[in-house]
């Protein structure tokens, strides 16, 4: 179910920022757009025919939108029929569709192994990393949409700026007032403490959690699960020291911080790296309470 409505992108990035006067190039491009649309229609008819003849295909319904291309300014769904192979992921199917049927199909992807965090999207109504979602585990037709609660740039690409801003709002870098004296001497960290922060350090910034969070959807200033988890990663790291932890708790205790979380666990459910986000938020709440009591 699609809940989002794409909005026009901001003026500065709307089309050609160079703002050329109408040129021969524009005319050629218009002509090309028209022909591209015809070509797409022809290919899709072919696909449907092929699909009827061959049962080993999967059907994808993919959200399409482009603010500047005729026929795509109104959001629509395109159907692609992709030959199924064992082990095929949603990303594989999208790449096949793009390389075979429509080279304008647009989505972010890079590592193909769930570590770059580029390809979080809304698959059959849930936030997933396309590269680690097996086609065989999904009901057909597979509906692929951009992440909800983010501005759609084009097709499956959403604007990540807000997510990055929130991540960067929690002073997401290691801080300490004390380093070991010796040359080439590392700070000591117990295995237990490393284990404690381990899951929190696995975040790949895919923003699936933020997209799934009802609170973040209603409060644009809410730090959101990923940013709070980032704060947790440092606040719980024994190498930082008590004074820094104090400062970190103040950051996450602000109006749009941990207290906004209503423990709905949607972030935890969608996290492709299995980070117990809600637990981390809860633990920070407890730390904040303990900390406040100390200062009363």
């Amino acid at each position: 179910m699609s809940t989002q409505t794409p909005t026009q992108t901001e003026e500065s990035s709307e089309t050609d920022a160079e703002a050329d006067a109408p040129s021969k190039g524009d005319e050629r491009r218009d002509e090309k757009r028209r022909r591209a649309a015809e070509e797409r229609a022809r290919r899709q008819a072919e696909e449907a025919e092929k699909a009827a003849a061959d049962e080993e295909t999967v059907e994808l319904k993919v959200f399409r939108y482009d603010p500047e291309v005729e026929g795509k300014q109104e959001p629509r769904f395109d159907t692609f029929h992709v030959p199924f192979t064992k082990g095929m992921t949603v990303l594989d199917a999208l790449m096949y569709s793009r390389d075979t049927y429509d080279s304008s199909l647009t989505f972010r992807h890079s590592c193909r192994q769930a570590v770059c965090g580029s390809d979080a999207m809304f698959v059959n109504g849930g936030q997933k990393l396309a590269c680690k979602t097996q086609i065989s585990e999904l009901e057909e037709p597979i509906r692929v949409e951009p992440l909800p609660h983010a501005e759609v740039r084009k097709d499956l690409v959403v604007d990540m700026e807000h997510f990055y801003d929130q991540m960067e709002a929690v002073e997401p870098y290691f801080q300490t007032n004390e380093y070991p004296d010796g040359e080439l001497e590392e700070q000591r960290q117990t295995r237990e403490n490393r284990e404690k922060i381990k899951m929190s350090t696995r975040c790949i910034w895919c923003s699936a959690c933020m997209s799934s969070c009802n609170i973040a959807a209603g409060d644009n200033e809410y730090l959101g699960p990923a940013a709070i988890n980032k704060a947790y990663r440092f606040a719980m790291d024994e190498r930082e020291g008590e004074d820094i932890k104090q400062k970190r708790l103040e950051i996450i205790e602000q109006e749009h911080g941990v207290w906004r979380c209503q423990t709905q666990f949607s972030c935890t459910e969608v996290c492709p790296k299995d980070i117990p986000l809600t637990e981390h938020i809860q633990e920070l709440k407890r730390e904040a309470v303990k900390n406040n009591l100390k200062f009363w």
Binding site: K32, A36, V69, S104, T106, K154
Partner: peptide
């Protein structure tokens, strides 16, 4: 490039 768009043209 068949995608004529200037927006996120990965093609």
């Amino acid at each position: 490039v068949s995608d004529p768009s200037r927006t996120f043209n990965t093609d």
